[in-house]
Design a protein around this nucleic acid. Structure first.
Lengths: 259, 259
DNA sequence: TCTGTAAGTTAACGGTGTTAACAGTTTATC
DNA sequence: GATAAACTGTTAACACCGTTAACTTACAGA
């Protein structure tokens, strides 16, 4: 099955071209907007003709799916790397870091954010079976964070997440089990709600609905992220911000190459 | 300047056609998805040719802008009407109702929601000066609600919104004043955050990121809406849900005609 | 050297937004 | 009532899009 080294070389070249195509698509998305990401434009950019791209991607939608998976991966990498800059037992720090980096990644990759959480490509519907695994990695990161803190007994959930209807508890526990998450249902509940809080603020900001707040949008978000940390009974530390700055500078250096 | 009755009749006919065009666009959006909303498809639907549409809308983007303004208006109508079904001094009820109806409208008009808060049309950028006033009406509704409760002394804001950096207070107060909102800065702060919370959950749900929660997404949202009401020191009442059901049935009867 | 495969090409189909030039009807004016 | 103007719609065309089919070209393996 694995062949002749010659064949493997060819495969390497193929994925190199595939990467070039994705890079061109990403470049166009960044400079001309999501609307300009057309197979013909990409081909022009690469000095090819459009039909040639079909040797590498079955269709425009396949290419977009690849871009989406890459975006999820980039996002997860940021989150994981940033959280890993803090001690494993610094639960408050890691949780706050997660929230803060979630916004930083979005601001640094607005087109990717739109690709994942808006619906910028008309007629495209993400194939669940391909994008869901990529998306789950992010969820896993935060759930692992929460679970670690939970195991360490560091978490005291606010009433909102403990005093809930019984059927809701049950159904949520079922959902968690079905998805293979081994965490208390209330943690899953909190994670979803927290995600919603952060997602909403970022989404509103990036799509231009918070112009009223101007520069203060970041401050609103920061307070929200800290509130969420407090919500599980943890105490956010200012030291986290210093490490965040360090992470961002590191990304600035290595970032632009392969986001 | 106002003319001859003849001219006014013509104007009426013109706006009637404009409405037909918007209706056709909306119909296509609902049945075939946002991708299918093309001038040619609309024209086909109306038994015309595409260039004829240019007599009524300067461009496709102008038409989309009109659809957006209509969507904002529909949303604001729902919110206003639903809140008005409760007594003016039922601050908790009105606030909870606002939150609940925000989701109900979104579920009932997913394409419009995407139009407002996603970015489903490629290459389209909403002209701020046209869409912002329409968008502000919704913000005004909730701010008026909050202010009424505030004036009545019914509101006790959680610490998150009172213990904030001094410069943040000042900048936010400036922003509020600049936008013509005569409310305490902390109310504006809370309104924005609350908006983010609700927006995030709806956005995640509608764009398919909460499939894990399944049916429970509604319950998560409900708990979140109640939490927000409690967050300003008000007590949500179960009676609100009965009135919500009443409102929704009323919308079901009159709704489909002109969304 | 011959052959098969892979990569890339051109040509074409049906779709899109948009413009220009033209026809038909209706309105206003002399 | 005839004539000019305004308005509403048409067709033809341009440049763009995703996609397919048929063809050329290079090149690795026998």
């Amino acid at each position: 099955m694995t062949q002749t080294r010659r064949e493997r070389l060819r495969e390497v070249a193929r994925t190199a071209v595939r990467d070039e195509i994705k890079a061109a698509a990403h470049r166009l998305m960044k400079t001309e907007g999501a609307a300009a990401v057309s197979l013909r434009a990409i081909a022009r950019d690469l000095g090819m003709t459009a039909p040639a791209l079909y040797r590498y991607y079955g269709s425009r939608d396949d290419l977009i799916t690849a871009l989406i998976v890459d975006a999820y991966t980039s996002q997860a990498d940021w989150l994981q790397q940033a959280c890993d800059m803090l001690a494993p037992d610094d639960h408050a720090g890691r949780l706050l870091m997660f929230g803060l980096v979630y916004r930083e990644w979005s601001l640094a990759h607005p087109e990717d954010f739109a690709l994942l959480y808006g619906t910028p490509i008309p007629g495209y519907h993400a194939p669940w079976e391909v994008t869901a695994p990529a998306a789950q990695r992010n969820m896993s990161i935060v759930l692992k964070l929460l679970d670690a803190a939970w195991q360490a007994g560091a978490i005291t959930l606010a009433e909102t997440y403990t005093r809930v209807p019984a059927t809701f508890r049950r159904k949520l526990a079922e959902a968690a089990a079905a998805a293979g998450y081994d965490v208390p249902f209330s943690l899953l509940h909190f994670a979803m709600v927290a995600w919603g809080h952060l997602q909403g603020l970022i989404s509103l900001e990036l799509f231009g609905h918070l112009v009223l707040l101007g520069e203060q949008a970041g401050e609103v978000y920061r307070l929200e992220a800290e509130a969420l940390v407090k919500c599980v009974g943890l105490k956010p530390s200012q030291r986290t911000y210093a490490i965040l700055r360090e992470f961002l500078q590191q990304q600035l250096r290595t970032g632009p190459v392969l986001n």
